[in-house]
């Protein structure tokens, strides 16, 4: 496996040095692995801090900026960051209005953020937490670690970030983040495994002519392996899976997300199929975002995320955002 890296051990700090070079509007602490918007702490504003394993770029560091996150803590590849990073990030961005931690529901992330929340509260920082668990592929929650946080994380960070920017207090931002998570569902498909720098090769074997349905974002195999399907058949499977679970009675925000190695040409073709299935189900997509946002290194494939949209969420979605990966209205 050829990778555009120096050595596997330094992929995360190397990328952070690049992020700093490209984005002077961010303060990047490479040694401590904390990315902060330069104007933080923003007076009177609730701060949003997220983080997670690296390998999902632009999530989360690419979402730091006005209207979204105040800070991000990148961990090693596919490995939750450590509590020290999160406490440092919370202290750097807290204006006194409190900090909302956006945590994807993975055992490691939950354990480390829980430890960090306790330590930050000891330092006098008011902390709230929202757990993102939007992935419908994990069904039997009693016998698993629970649903995974995937594409819905983008909606939580964007919409709660916009609410915080408008000046909403911590309880309101937290309640909104929770509502967005409860309104979001995702389903992902892999056409190839991804290769982690540590392993130097694919994380699982996928024979030619087959695909994985119900994948997560860490190179883990999915729930089911099938013979290769067309873009239209994949859209049928993914959209039915999310809509059967969400049962939306309103229009939705739609994210058609690439896993990292699928060309935009294919992703837009897939978006057309997703829209076809949504309209067959009578569910209009009022906003559609297409691109590589919550990725899994060099995995080929895509995920579909829908979020029930009411007037408030639509207004917050359209609100200005200025980050490396999402930018509009400013």
């Amino acid at each position: 496996m050829r990778m555009l890296i120096n050595v596997a051990e330094t992929v995360v700090p190397d990328a952070l040095r690049g992020l700093a070079a490209a984005h002077p509007e961010l303060t990047v602490d490479v040694a401590n692995r904390v990315v902060v918007r330069r104007d933080a702490p923003v007076s009177g504003k609730v701060a949003l801090v997220s983080g997670g394993g690296s390998g999902h770029e632009p999530l989360h560091s690419g979402f730091v900026g006005r209207g979204m996150l105040d800070a991000a803590c990148p961990g090693e590849v596919f490995t939750s960051p450590v509590p020290d990073q999160m406490v440092r990030a919370a202290a750097a961005v807290d204006s006194g209005a409190g900090v909302l931690l956006v945590v994807k529901n993975y055992t490691g992330d939950v354990l480390n953020f829980d430890m960090a929340a306790e330590l930050a509260e000891d330092e006098g920082i008011q902390i709230a937490k929202v757990l993102v668990d939007d992935d419908v592929a994990v069904t039997d929650s009693l016998y698993t670690a629970g649903r995974r946080g995937t594409g819905g994380t983008l909606f939580v960070e964007k919409l709660a970030g916009a609410a915080a920017e408008e000046g909403a207090p911590l309880e309101r931002v937290e309640a909104l983040a929770r509502r967005v998570n409860e309104s979001s569902r995702s389903f992902g498909v892999a056409l190839s495994a991804c290769s982690t720098p540590a392993k130097g090769g694919p994380t699982f074997e996928l024979p030619p002519g087959e695909l994985e349905l119900g994948i997560g974002i860490h190179g883990e195999p999915g729930r089911e392996r099938r013979a290769m399907m067309t873009s239209g058949e994949i859209a049928d499977a993914a959209v039915h899976a999310v809509l059967d679970d969400l049962q939306p009675d309103s229009p939705v925000l739609l994210l058609v997300n690439g896993m990292g190695a699928t060309p935009l040409l294919e992703l837009y073709g897939f978006t057309a199929e997703v829209h076809r299935v949504l309209s067959e189900r009578g569910v209009p997509a009022v906003r559609t975002l297409v691109g590589n946002y919550v990725t899994s290194l060099d995995m080929a494939g895509a995920s579909v995320t829908v979020c029930r949209a009411d007037e408030e969420l639509l207004r917050l979605w359209d609100a200005p955002v200025n980050t490396p990966a999402l930018r509009w209205g400013c």
Binding site: G75, S80, P83, D84, Y106, T107, G108, L111, N112, M115
Partner: peptide, 12 residues
């Protein structure tokens, strides 16, 4: 270990 490993195995 808690400060350097991350993931689930660090805290555990």
């Amino acid at each position: 270990l808690i400060s350097t490993v991350g993931g689930a195995s660090g805290p555990l």
